[in-house]
Structure formats: structure tokens, C-alpha cells
Write a protein that binds this DNA or RNA. Structure first.
Length: 486
RNA sequence: GGCGGCGUAGCCAAGUGGCAAGGCAGGACUCUGCAAAAGUCCCAUCCGCCGGUUCGAAUCCGGCCGCCGCCUCCA
């Protein structure tokens, strides 16, 4: 089974073959850290996270690089986003960047998004960026203006627009042209911007004091950590133009080599069918979402649609996700409890475990088909039904057999999709709670044996008020903590 | 205006030539003191609309309608 990836560069599904056997270099455009991340960011980074996780499942050694933009990302007004925020909050620009970078990683950690191997900051790679600009000037792909700005000359590149399917001539017609600047072509983009002394975020360069343009950082950092040509470049589609296009143009012009080989772009998150974005104000921060929904539900919601498609955020959809993921968790919880209570046998009952193999295969087939997580999740649910039947069948299997089944969940639902934690929340209650619950349920069992239903039910109701749900199973009562709104 | 994409049940969502996956919600039943969990069954003769190609189309072609993204703020 081979992995196939839809490559935006060729607009075709292609069999994935890394540059170097067994090794994958992957880059993703990270956030500009001037505010808290919202669910739109979550969609992109959860989707990319699952790709990385799956590549690792396939035993590729993945180096995942995701930049942190802390300088150079300009507003329409020409003002740097970070600096603007710093001015509004009366703090150092780097304080803004540090604050929101921390916030970003807190959110990603909470969502189970694995950290990139390297998360380089733009401000920490100014010399590398200057080097790229110098190379481009030397090779004649860029020009310096009298004001001390350096621009990339789009017309010098034959295939400019190849990723987004854009034509330089069309751009001229529709471009929002800034009349004041000294660009030779409206689509030319800044590599280096001059900055006056009152500009608080600036560095010396061969062209005087200034700061790098937004796009250069990705070229500088991607090539530095992954090489001139690397395997996969990911990001949100909304950055396909101009950002990704500019990255390709300047990178390939500077190195003379192809840049990223496979481009994977994620569809946007929408609210009422309109893209969630800072500028529209229709965003929900990840922190806010986590107040209401579990991290697994948020991941489930994102992964239940294919990464290239847009996803519409709604309370209804989120509740559906919450319930769906809970269904998987319920089975896993029962499975693990059964494992704990089973006879410690080291022999795996192959006939039982082999029955589940087709579901794993379907899961992997789906993932191999351009990371088709919705289909993978469907396979997981079919597996779930099979496992529930087994749990209900009353068959007494040895510990090793239950463990083998649990391992399937841990690998596919846990390690690959990140929607099944290694420890469910109520599995980490600690000895004290475990002990107290044993006592309480023991008392309740005595009431039940004596058919004192009112007493038994009252106890169950009081526990429910504390968020503890008790299920009376034929093999004895089990309990779980119910959190969130699901 | 240019480029790209989408429209599948009440909701979410796979499927891209052979008689519509999966989840949520809903209904019936089984188990059960009750509840919960779980299981079984039911829940789109139909895939925006209209034509065409084909033995056969949600899937291909043409037209139409509606919606969205990008076109230098955006993951």
C-alpha cells in the first residue's frame, strides 16, 4: 500500500516518494503571533499534524519545521502587525510575539498537536534572510529602490503563478496597486523594507536599516533546515496567493532548484459559510472553544471532513462530534477495564484479533488515499461495533488479547488521529478517587442486593451531580467522569 | 472581471461509471429493578436543476441556478 497525496502544484494525486528513502522534510507556514489563535488555525494545524503523525506511522523519519512569524507581516496600512499590537498594548514588540507564541503552543498542546521539530522565528533568522535577498539581487531577480526597499521582480520568473494558477498579466489588471511605492510591476513584492529610526523593530542590512518582507522568512528557514529542495510544504489555502507563490518564486530563483515537491493546502474553516478570520471578527479562539468542547471533539470535528475541504463551524456539528468521540471513548474505556479484570494470560487469541484486521486495513487504505480521515474514522466506527459485540458476548479472553485490541485503538485512534487519549480523563483520577469510588459503589451494591432501589438511585443521582456517571453492567458497576457539554 | 472550488437524508460527512460508507439526532426492539452503556432493526428509489453520452451516472459531457475561497490583512 502506497501513500498518495494530492499535490497542489500539479493538481493531481501523486504517489508519495520522498527525496531520500525513509526521510521526509516537511515545512508549514506557521502563525503570525500577534493575537490568540482561533479555530481556523486549529483546522490547519490539526490536519497537518495528522499528516505528520501518519508519515511517522509509516515509519518515515519526519523533520517537521513550522515557522513563527514575529516580524514583517504587514497590514494594508503598511504597518507591521506585531508593532501595531505593541503600540496598542504599550509593550515591546518582542513581548507581543513572545506572549502569543506561548499562547499558540499552549493551544496546540491542548489540542494534541505535536510540536514541530523546529519552530524557527523570523526575527532569529535575519542574517539568513538578508543572504537570500543578496543572492536574489546578485542574480538579477530583485532590485533596490531609492528609498532603501528591495523588491522581487516578478516578471523575471517565467513560471510565476504556477501554484495558484495565476497569470502575471491578469494580476496587473486586478491588483490593488499602492500608488506611492516604487515597484516596477504591481505584483512585485517586498524582500526588504526600509525602516526609519522611530521604527522600533529593525535591523541593519546592506540596504540600510530595515526589516524583511513577510515571504522571505519561509524561504530562508525552509532551505536552511530542510535543504533547497524538500518533500512537503503545507499550509492553509488562503495563503496560496500571494504568500506561497512568492515563496516558490524567490526560493527557486535564489537556489536554482525546485522548492517543495508536494504542496498540501488545507481548506478554510467557515462560520455560516463565511471564512473565520481575524479581520471579519467572526472567530472563536481555541481557548474559548476548549471551555465548551473537549480537545478530542475539536480534533474529531476537524478530521471528520477531508482536509482540503472547507468545514463549517456550528454548535450542532460540534455536539455531533462530541457525541461521536464519546462513543469511541466509551468502548475503549470498557475494553481497558475488561483488560484490567481479565486473567493474566500472555497468549493472544488470534482468531479474535484477526477478525479486526480488515478494519485496520480499511483505515490505512483511507489514510493512504490523500489522508482521507473521514473514511478512516468510519472504519474506526465499524471496528468499534465489532469490539462492542465482543465485549457484550461475555467471552472471557486473556489479558494479552484485550491488550492487542486496545493497541489497535492506541495506534490508529491515538497515535495517528489523536482522538483517543492513552489515558481517558477518568483513568487518571488517582488512587484516592479510585478508593473512594470503590467504597461508594460497594455501599450502593449492598443497597441493590437488598433491593433498596431508592437508596441506590439516590446515590447514583448524587454522583451524577458531581459529573460521575455509573453504569450497572452484568459484570459489575463501572463509572466514568462526564465533562464538557457533550 | 480573472483563477480555483463546492452543492449527497433534519445536522455533519465519505463515495467520482455498476444498483448511496460512517457519525449525530429520531423511531421500534433486546439486555436491565430502573437508568446508562451496548447490540439488532428502521430512517436518501435518491445525490442543486435541466439536457446528453452509456447496457448502466451522484460519479463523464453541456447548460442553468445557488454558495464559497483567492486576486498582496489572513492558517
Amino acid at each position: 500500500m502506497a501513500l498518495w497525496i494530492y499535490n497542489y502544484l500539479t493538481r493531481e494525486r501523486e504517489q508519495f516518494e520522498p527525496l531520500q528513502e525513509g526521510y521526509v522534510g516537511m515545512y508549514a507556514c506557521g502563525p503570525t503571533v500577534y493575537d490568540h489563535a482561533h479555530l481556523g488555525h486549529a483546522k490547519t494545524y490539526v490536519a497537518l499534524d495528522v499528516m505528520v503523525r501518519y508519515l511517522r506511522h509509516l515509519e518515515y523519519d519526519v523533520r517537521y519545521v513550522q515557522n513563527i512569524t514575529d516580524v514583517g507581516h504587514l497590514l494594508d496600512s503598511g504597518e507591521d502587525r506585531i508593532i501595531r499590537k505593541a503600540r496598542l498594548e504599550r509593550v515591546e514588540p518582542m513581548e507581543v510575539a513572545a506572549t502569543y507564541e506561548r499562547s499558540y503552543f499552549e493551544d496546540m498542546d491542548a489540542l494534541g498537536v505535536q510540536r514541530p521539530n523546529i519552530a524557527p522565528r523570523a526575527s532569529g533568522h535575519i542574517p539568513e534572510q538578508i543572504q537570500v535577498v543578496e543572492t536574489l539581487l546578485e542574480k538579477g531577480y530583485a532590485y533596490e529602490t531609492e528609498g532603501g526597499d528591495v523588491y522581487f521582480a516578478v516578471e523575471r520568473v517565467e513560471d510565476y503563478g504556477k501554484l495558484s494558477g495565476r497569470d502575471v498579466e491578469d494580476l496587473e489588471a486586478g491588483a490593488r496597486v499602492d500608488v506611492r511605492d516604487e515597484k516596477r510591476h504591481p505584483a512585485d513584492f517586498a524582500l526588504w523594507k526600509h525602516a526609519d529610526p522611530e521604527h522600533i523593530l529593525r535591523w541593519p542590512s546592506p540596504w540600510g536599516w530595515g526589516y524583511p518582507g513577510w515571504h522571505v522568512e519561509c524561504t530562508a528557514m525552509a532551505t536552511r533546515y530542510l535543504g533547497e529542495t524538500f518533500d512537503i510544504h503545507g499550509g492553509g489555502v488562503d495563503n496560496i496567493f500571494p504568500h506561497n507563490e512568492c515563496e516558490i518564486a524567490q526560493s527557486e530563483a535564489a537556489t536554482g532548484e525546485p522548492f517543495a515537491r508536494y504542496w498540501v493546502l488545507t481548506g478554510s474553516l467557515t462560520v455560516d459559510d463565511v471564512k473565520m478570520s481575524k479581520s471579519l471578527g467572526n472567530f472563536v479562539t481555541i481557548k474559548d472553544a476548549l471551555e465548551t468542547y473537549s480537545p478530542e471533539a475539536i480534533r474529531f470535528f476537524i478530521l471528520s471532513s477531508h482536509y482540503r475541504k472547507p468545514v463549517d463551524y456550528s454548535r450542532e456539528a460540534m455536539l455531533g462530534a462530541e457525541r461521536g468521540v464519546k462513543r469511541l471513548h466509551n468502548t475503549v474505556r470498557s475494553l481497558r477495564q475488561r483488560k484490567e479484570r481479565a486473567a493474566p494470560s500472555g497468549i493472544v487469541d488470534r482468531s479474535e484479533v484477526d477478525k479486526l484486521a480488515p478494519y485496520s486495513e480499511r483505515f490505512l487504505e483511507a489514510m493512504n488515499d490523500d489522508f482521507n480521515t473521514p473514511r478512516a474514522i468510519a472504519a474506526l466506527f465499524d471496528l468499534n461495533r465489532e469490539v462492542n459485540e465482543l465485549l457484550n458476548s461475555g467471552k472471557s479472553l486473556g489479558q494479552a488479547t484485550w491488550k492487542a485490541i486496545d493497541d489497535v485503538y492506541r495506534e490508529l485512534g491515538g497515535r495517528v488521529l489523536g482522538i483517543i487519549p492513552d489515558q481517558l480523563t477518568d483513568e487518571v483520577s488517582g488512587e484516592l478517587v479510585e478508593g473512594l469510588m470503590d467504597i461508594i459503589l460497594g455501599i450502593r451494591e449492598r443497597y441493590r442486593r437488598n433491593k433498596e432501589w431508592q437508596e441506590a438511585d439516590a446515590l447514583r443521582d448524587r454522583l451524577a451531580k458531581l459529573g460521575i456517571v455509573v453504569d450497572d453492567r452484568p459484570e459489575g458497576p463501572i463509572w466514568r467522569r462526564e465533562s464538557g457539554s457533550g
